[in-house]
Each structure stands twice: as C-alpha cells, then as structure tokens.
C-alpha cells in the first residue's frame, strides 16, 4: 500500500531527527506503525505533535506479547487533523519492570489512557500526574489483561456487597 505523501515525509523527517531511535517501520491492515526506542518516547512525541502536527492522541493501549523477549508493548494512536494521517507509534518494554515515561506533558489526553494501560497491564508511567487505577478497585492486586490472568478473574478478589443491611 502506498503512503500518503504527507505521511511519507513525516516518517522521513522522524528518521532524520532521531537517527538510531526508530527500531522498525512497517505497514499492516492499511495502517502505518513506527516502533521507537522507549527512552525517547517523550521527545519523539513532542516532535510529532509540534513539528509534524500529530495533535490528536486518539488512543493509547497496551499489548501483552506473552513469551516474547520484550513482553509488553504500548501503542500510541496518533492523528494529524491537518494532513488527515494516522500513525501508530509503539514502544516495547521488558517483563520485569515495564516502565515508560508518561506523554501527558505532550498530550493531556494521555492521562486516562495511561491509567487504563496501567490498570490492565501493570505498565508504569514515569512522571504521570495521577497514577491510579481507572477501572478496577484501587486495592485490586492483579492486572486483568495479562495473558496469565484467568478469564473469570480470581474468585473472591473483588468484594461483593454485604447481603445484610447495616441496620440489622
């Protein structure tokens, strides 16, 4: 599939600006993916937003690449409203301490997205302004979208309400 001219020039500029930090560029299902070095994600994000006009962070999600070397992946779904381009930026993180810098300083929208990724996969985001779980109870001790987590959850791990009213 052909890249749009704007997307092609964006990727060329990205390559030029961050030599050696772009690990992989490929296309799949009609979308363009760029895998970058996890340590430079904030710089790359800021460049993408301010220079290449990817102003809209549509989504951030995690992936569990179970039994692969770098087990976790964080994917940033970026949209350039000016050029009508969509770009997926990925970083790979290791299994022992999955940690990456937060991009909330670039896109404010990343706040809740990163909380969701943390909630579901246990990936930590450095310098996140509000690093809490977003869906599961705050005292929950598992990460439900990890591959080893059972489908029906851990029995008894989330409290059900008491069936006797407090007054009785």
């Amino acid at each position: 599939m052909d890249l749009t001219s704007t997307l092609k020039s964006s990727i060329d500029k990205l390559n030029e600006q961050f030599p050696g930090k772009i690990a992989d560029i490929y296309q799949s299902s009609g979308d363009t993916f760029v895998r970058v070095d996890a340590d430079t994600i904030v710089d790359i994000s800021r460049y993408l937003k301010e220079e290449l006009r990817f102003v809209y962070l549509s989504d951030v999600f995690g992936t569990d690449r179970y039994q692969s070397d770098d087990r976790f992946e964080v994917v940033y779904n970026l949209i350039s409203l000016r050029d009508r381009d969509r770009l997926f930026v990925k970083v790979w993180l290791n299994e022992e301490s999955p940690e990456v810098d937060s991009v909330t300083s670039v896109w404010k929208a990343a706040n809740w997205f990163e909380r969701e990724v943390y909630d579901m996969f246990g990936i930590r985001f450095r310098n996140h302004p509000d690093h809490r779980r977003i869906y599961m109870p705050e005292d929950y001790s598992y990460y439900p979208l990890r591959k080893e987590f059972p489908l029906l959850g851990i029995p008894g791990s989330i409290e059900l309400p008491s069936t006797t009213p407090e007054s009785e």
């Binding site: 599961m136 439900p144 489908l151 029906l152 959850g153 989330i158 059900l160 309400p161």
Partner: peptide, 14 residues
C-alpha cells in the same frame, strides 16, 4: 459477559 469484572448473576447479592 463471562469475565472478571461482571457479577455472574445479581442473585449473588440480591
């Protein structure tokens, strides 16, 4: 919704 976040029947608490 056979998953970790959904109560498998409200008769678990009602």
């Amino acid at each position: 919704h056979r998953c970790y976040g959904v109560v498998q029947g409200v008769d678990n608490f009602l």
